[in-house]
Design a protein around this nucleic acid. Structure first.
Lengths: 111, 111
DNA sequence: GGCGTATATGTCGGATCGCTAGGCATTGAG
DNA sequence: CTCAATGCCTAGCGATCCGACATATACGCC
């Protein structure tokens, strides 16, 4: 994060990961790169954040994992969305929408 | 929170409080009511969240406090924004904006 | 062959923060 | 008098993000 309050990231990590994984099977390291790239360097998900989060999401049945080879001929754990994960993603997107609108309501309040 | 992921609230509490206080001197209990009211019941800041947050913001020099009487003739601690608090509010609003846009970028990504 | 960097996964401890659950005191309505 | 609402507070718990560390492989370069 450039100088942003990292606290805003709380809870949103799951949403971001679920979304990126929904674009197609992808391994952990690439997930963090992709998030950073798409967000134009705004989000930089640290490894100490990323891997525990992935295990969390896997344990909750939202992600499935499989070891495969990368393009460069190395082993990596590729994650994909489960059916439950897809539902969770939609729920979290709606939740984010609601939250975002509610914050906007307050920030726009004048007087 | 109706059924939203409460984690999204992380860090945003400070922003919401600073914004509401910026509307004019107000005491703690009223702050939580105001936030709930403006957000159409989306946010319900619990007391165990509210008061520690107020002390936090006061300790950081963003809020000033003063005991005064309410309309109903009771004593209450009225908070107001300090100069530092006003700068902090603007910083957090910008930060929220950035965060919000970054999330939108990711959520809007197709393929 | 040796070295450094990028890739790739993981753990651990500290710190922060929101929530539940409790406590305490006053005011006003029934 | 009793109860709900107002108004303030703290303690402990659980969740989670981060920095630091550990490990291993692939690749380019000298």
């Amino acid at each position: 994060m450039p100088e942003a309050k990292p606290e805003f990231l709380k809870g949103a990590v799951d949403l971001l990961i679920l979304k990126v994984v929904s674009l197609g099977p992808i391994h952990g390291y690439a997930i963090s790169q992709r998030i950073q790239q798409i967000s134009k360097d705004y989000f930089q998900v640290q490894q100490g954040t990323l891997y525990p989060a992935l295990h969390r999401l896997e344990n909750r049945g939202w992600l499935g994992a499989e070891w495969k080879d990368t393009d460069t001929g190395r082993e990596a754990k590729f994650y994909s969305l489960t059916k439950k994960g897809r539902k969770q993603l939609e729920a979290e997107m709606a939740s984010w929408e609601g939250m975002s609108n509610a914050v906007a309501l307050i920030l726009r309040t004048a007087e």
